[in-house]
Design a protein around this nucleic acid. Sequence first.
DNA 1: CTGTTAGCGCTTTCAT
DNA 2: ATGAAAGCGCTAACAG
Lengths: 335, 335
Amino acid sequence: MSKHITIYDIAEASQVSASTVSRALRKEPSIGRETRKRILAKAEELGYRFNPFASNLRTNRTRNIGVITPKLDDYYFSGVLGGIERELSNGGYNTILHQSLGCAHREKAAISTLHRSRVDGMIMLGPVVAQENEYTQAFSNGEVPVVVVDSSAWWGARNISVDNYTASYELTTHLIQVGCREIAHVTTGTTVTSFNERLNGYKAALQYSSLPVVENLVIIDDKCETSPDYLDRLFSRERLPDAIFFASDVAAVTAIPFLRSNGVRIPEDIRIAGFGNDPLGRIIEPTLTTIDFAPVDVGRSSARHILSLIGDLHSKFEPQPVKHQLIIRHSSTTK
Amino acid sequence: MSKHITIYDIAEASQVSASTVSRALRKEPSIGRETRKRILAKAEELGYRFNPFASNLRTNRTRNIGVITPKLDDYYFSGVLGGIERELSNGGYNTILHQSLGCAHREKAAISTLHRSRVDGMIMLGPVVAQENEYTQAFSNGEVPVVVVDSSAWWGARNISVDNYTASYELTTHLIQVGCREIAHVTTGTTVTSFNERLNGYKAALQYSSLPVVENLVIIDDKCETSPDYLDRLFSRERLPDAIFFASDVAAVTAIPFLRSNGVRIPEDIRIAGFGNDPLGRIIEPTLTTIDFAPVDVGRSSARHILSLIGDLHSKFEPQPVKHQLIIRHSSTTK
DNA sequence: CTGTTAGCGCTTTCAT
DNA sequence: ATGAAAGCGCTAACAG
């Protein structure tokens, strides 16, 4: 374990002071072109390696951004995360990743860890805990900037949100336009804000068309992405609905084979729509009408936003709402 | 911006020295129970916040592990990454994430960045660059431990590998057993080691059954996960193969609708198999025969491995090869 | 444009 | 069981 080369070694070997070396290394314009070149060459020659620990200690910055996501094995979140990583990397930042797995306890732990690690900023995807608490404090008081994705309410943090409400409204309206009058809505739950917004968009569209919001056509089942047990409730009605709008593609794709094996023809008997444009929706038969959110763009946008809040983006970044798109496929239209 | 509380402030307030505070905070056993309690209470009271920068500077450790993955929007890799994050988190480590996007340039950049960031260890998923080079050096010389997943050859790094070769051999053998004699293999390329191993396993199985390896039945097309253009080559043969073994489920799922729309019956005319057990394979019709790899276990295993190499695992961890499983579904068997 | 000086906050011998 | 003292390697006034 030989002694490591420091800027002092370079300074000595190049007959300048350590501060000059430090400045040259950081390409401060105040250092002459020639001097800098000499110093850089010497650093290279000696095998110098920058020590971020010492730098961090002085500057109190890490160039690390924390990201908390509910899960990774999901088309939407993995896309968003991919966009974030790409953009942060390009900006010279590291992405520190934690998963909440939809569990408040893990989410809090992740927040604490990121705070202790002194990240320069944080991006929260689909937060579990919407209320301020002892853990969120350091972030919510503005000490460390936070961008929240997909939640309209979070302790005053900046927000990049896809417009779940409008998208859901448009999708529901599409179903009405193709002739549906009894549209069921299946969702995992309303605690996650984005799902709540989808439910509200659905209701609003019905009301706009003077259709009633029928209570037992709104099905909330946190297992709906895993098994379609709740469909019994629908089948036990005297008449089937003429459409089902699933708040997530995965839920739709889970239900479709079950529906078909029960003799339900799609879209003739029931029209189906999902939400999220998961690749599954292009594979399932019939292909699934859904909403696309450009997850990668959501990610890139939130990354740029956090960098701008940190002040590392020269041009001030004004987050644009990421545009969604209605994707109409066979499951909602007769051929 | 008020002055931050340091261990010196605690020391003063508790009438002890800074070193005692430091030891108490780290729960060194040499500090008396009573003293420690007093110190911790005082720290709490003053709102002390540990400063990892100073600690890092002294100890030269970060408790950060770098992870490089080709991509995130992929069933296998996102599963592995999920397992890694979970396990590292549990061990008190942060996961620093970078994507190579299958591009050697980005991979090298990620390696450099992680090295500069002084991560304590690194996990590489599906490395693009298999040869040692200037970037890998610091990692390959053992200065920083590395675990590589899914590649049997990488600059002497420790390796957690799923056994692509055997899995591929078994899958091919299954196809032979159900009666196939002309089995095509479609793969994205052989530069990624795991795909090369799958190709080799395929060839070996054919040879074991005294079947020839037909050159134009091995199709290498880096776009095969996006579009099935290469199928023309297969259709232009005088006779169709009686099976196609796709080196990835995504490629299989991309091709199947195209095959069926060309009047190919599956499995009657051509039997199909994929690789990876992507959820898509349960949705597509007919459901896809494939190999499952328990990606989360692969991730957890590699995380434990790296922690053990760092010396942060008390029990020495001996990585077990993660067991794969042949999943037989409709695409390869007649009902 | 470059040098001097004084730390950043913690850990770690070495004493006692 | 506790304290004194010496840095870890870099950066940022301030001075010239």
